[in-house]
C-alpha cells in the first residue's frame, strides 16, 4: 500500500513536471504555434484511440462507427457553448453524456447478439448520424457548423489526455475490466464462470462511446468548425488504424499508435512526397501485414510502465502472461 502510494506520487510529480516544462517551452516560443497544434491533435487522437481500444481491445467487440460518436459529442457540445452559452467544461461533459447515451441506444439491443453484429450496426449508425446532421439546418447541415469558440488549449488537452489514460487504466483493472477481458477471450466460458457478458460488453461500449464524444467536443472547440463529412467512415478507419498499429488491447500501444500516425505525416511534410501521396496505400498494406504477422500490433497486449522502466533496463513489461493474438 505504502509502496503503491509512493509510486503514485512519483507519477503525479513526473506528469506535473512534464506539464510545467511543456508550458514553459510554449511560452518561451521554443515549442512554436505549429508544434503546439500538432501536440493538441495528438492529444485528441490519443483519447480517441484509447476509447476505441477499450471497445475493441478489452471488450472484444468491433465498432466501426467511432467517428459518429465523436460527431455526437462535437455537435452537442458546440450547440451548448455556441447557441446556449454554456461554459466549456460542462458543455463537453454534456457532449460526452450524449455520446454515451447514443452508445447505450445502439449497444443495449445489439450487444445481446453474438457475432459481428456490432460492427455492422455501428457502421450503419455512423451513416445515419451523418445523414441526420446533413438534414439539420440548425447546425448548418452539410455546410458545417462554424463560429465555435476556441476553448481547447494545450492545458486542457494535457489534463484530459492524462485523465483519459488514468480512467482507462482504472476501468481495465477494475472488476468490470476483468469481466470485459474475460468476455473478449471467450464469451461462453466467461458466462459459464458467472460473468454477465452483456453487462460487461455494454459498459465497455458506453464508456468508449462517451470518451469518443468527449474527444469530439475537444476537437470542435479546437478547430472552431465542424462538418458532417469530417466524421465519416474514413475517420472511423483512421482511429481503427491507430489502435491496430499500436496493438489491440494495449493502452500504451494505443497511445503510441496515435502519436506515431499523427506526427509522422507532419514530419514527412516537405520531403517524402512519395510516401505522402501513397499514404493511404501504405497504411492499408501495413494493416494487412500487421494482421498476418503481428496481429497484436507494436506493443501487443504488453504495457509500458514506469515501474518496469525503473526496475530493469527492460522497456516492456509482460502483464498477465504472454498471449499472442487479440483473442
Amino acid at each position: 500500500m505504502q509502496k503503491n502510494m509512493k509510486k503514485g506520487i512519483i507519477k503525479i510529480v513526473i506528469v506535473v513536471l512534464v506539464f510545467i516544462l511543456a508550458k514553459f517551452l510554449i511560452r518561451e516560443g521554443i515549442i512554436g504555434a505549429y508544434t503546439e497544434r500538432i501536440i493538441i491533435t495528438v492529444g485528441i487522437n490519443i483519447i480517441l484511440a484509447l476509447s476505441l481500444n477499450l471497445i475493441i481491445g478489452y471488450t472484444g467487440q468491433l465498432a466501426l462507427g467511432h467517428a459518429a460518436f465523436m460527431a455526437v459529442g462535437a455537435y452537442v457540445s458546440a450547440i451548448f457553448t455556441t447557441k446556449l452559452n454554456l461554459p466549456f467544461v460542462p458543455a463537453i461533459i454534456l457532449g460526452a453524456v450524449a455520446g454515451g447515451a447514443a452508445g447505450f441506444l445502439i449497444g443495449w439491443p445489439i450487444l445481446r447478439l453474438k457475432g459481428d453484429y456490432l460492427a455492422i450496426c455501428t457502421l450503419g449508425f455512423g451513416e445515419i448520424v451523418k445523414v441526420l446532421i446533413q438534414n439539420i439546418e440548425y447546425v448548418g447541415a452539410a455546410r458545417g457548423f462554424s463560429g465555435i469558440k476556441l476553448f481547447t488549449t494545450f492545458g486542457w488537452i494535457f489534463l484530459f489526455t492524462v485523465l483519459a489514460y488514468i480512467l482507462i487504466k482504472r476501468v481495465v483493472n477494475s472488476v468490470y475490466g476483468r469481466d470485459m477481458r474475460a468476455v473478449s477471450q471467450d464469451e461462453i466460458a466467461a458466462e459459464a464462470m458467472g460473468v454477465n457478458a452483456f453487462r460487461a460488453k455494454l459498459l465497455g461500449f458506453i464508456i468508449g462511446c462517451a470518451m469518443a464524444a468527449f474527444a469530439g467536443g475537444l476537437y470542435a472547440h479546437y478547430l472552431m468548425f465542424i462538418d458532417p463529412v469530417s466524421f465519416d467512415f474514413n475517420k472511423s478507419t483512421e482511429i481503427l488504424t491507430f489502435v491496430v498499429l499500436g496493438g489491440i488491447g494495449s493502452t500504451s500501444g494505443s497511445v503510441a499508435g496515435a502519436v506515431i500516425l499523427t506526427v509522422l505525416p507532419e514530419a514527412l511534410r516537405g520531403f517524402g512526397d512519395f510516401i505522402k501521396t501513397y499514404r493511404m496505400l501504405i497504411y492499408s498494406i501495413m494493416i494487412v501485414i500487421l494482421m498476418i504477422f503481428r496481429p497484436q500490433g507494436i506493443m501487443g497486449n504488453r504495457e509500458l510502465s514506469l515501474q518496469n522502466l525503473m526496475k530493469k533496463g527492460n522497456t516492456f513489461n509482460i502483464k498477465g502472461g504472454e498471449k499472442d493474438g487479440i483473442a
Partner: peptide, 10 residues
C-alpha cells in the same frame, strides 16, 4: 478541415 489550419500555421 482539420488539416488546413495546421498547415497554415506551419
Amino acid at each position: 478541415p482539420s488539416k488546413a489550419p495546421t498547415v497554415a500555421q506551419k
